[in-house]
């Protein structure tokens, strides 16, 4: 089991009907229990790649295996949970019911569901908001609901598309630590999309740097910072070296992050 990659992307390309080549010749192996970040300029195909891993869209060429199975099979087996770039909550459901949605679909009993939702609400610090509707929450709160929902059924693989993009710096750093704790405790594998270089370095075992047009993997940075990470990690010299390395890799593709993204 452990020698089999959690995610195996083999020569994946994606052309959209409009003629946009979003991805070209992507090869990537994510080992079980690994935390891999995808970083790259806006529009380089990060969300597209995540969708292909989740079998939400088909690649134009190549194939993806998840836990040694075709991505399609893995989706049917509920092998992964996904956090989209937008929260994608159902307006008519309360916070608690949005979190419980996958559990309902998996036919968990009412009480078991309620217990699990309570844990998750605590985890993402939304106590007191269980009965609120999505339109009564801030963007960051909505995104936390969507994270809780993805975690609810303890999937072996977590696909996260800029889950902390809408959060303030403080909350973001706290959620980073929380995510690492969950990752450590659950033994899951995480593929994580972010625009923030420090975030990618802080969280990941490896950072895959992508370049634009067509989207491809420009390089992979091994993050050899010791585990487990803590708030201290951000202050280590090695952390800054790695941040610089990722930045240079991004620049090497003849690309820069948009100024707003550089700021974070």
């Amino acid at each position: 089991m452990n020698d089999r990659p959690a995610v195996h992307i083999k020569g994946v390309s994606k052309q959209f009907k409009a003629g946009v080549t979003a991805l070209s010749g992507i090869d990537l192996e994510v080992r079980p229990r690994e935390f891999v970040s995808l970083i790259g300029p806006s529009g380089c195909g990060k969300s597209t790649l995540l969708r292909i891993i989740g079998d939400l869209i088909e690649p134009s060429a190549g194939a993806v295996e998840v836990n040694g199975k075709p991505a399609h099979r893995a989706r049917l087996d509920h092998d992964y949970g996904i956090v989209f770039q937008e929260a994608v909550l159902y307006d008519w459901r309360t916070v608690a019911k949005n979190i419980a949605l996958p559990l309902e679909l998996l036919r968990w009993g009412r009480e078991k569901r309620a217990r699990r939702v309570e844990e998750l609400v605590e985890l993402v610090e939304l106590q007191g908001f269980e009965d609120h509707h999505p339109w009564q929450l801030s963007g960051g709160m909505q995104q936390r609901v969507s994270i809780a929902r993805a975690l609810s059924f303890d999937p072996a693989l977590l696909l996260m598309d800029e889950p902390f993009g809408a959060l303030d710096e403080m909350t973001r750093e706290r959620m980073n630590l929380e995510l690492l704790r969950i990752w450590d405790a659950s033994g899951s594998t995480i593929v994580f999309v972010t625009h923030s270089i420090p975030e990618a370095v802080f969280l990941s075992s490896r950072v895959a740097v992508m370049s634009r047009r067509p989207g491809r993997i420009a390089g992979i940075v091994e993050v050899d910072l010791p585990q487990p990470r803590s708030a201290r990690t951000r202050e280590e010299p090695r952390f800054f070296e790695l941040v610089t390395e990722v930045r240079e890799r991004l620049a090497a593709g003849g690309l820069e992050l948009e100024p707003a993204e550089e700021a974070s």
Binding site: R51, L56, L76, H78, F84, V88, L105, L106
Partner: peptide, 18 residues
């Protein structure tokens, strides 16, 4: 919203009801 349901491999009936 449809993609979310797809990610849970929800069948037509579930998509209809939920």
């Amino acid at each position: 919203s449809m993609e979310l349901m797809r990610s849970y491999a929800a069948d037509r009936t579930a998509v209809l009801w939920k």
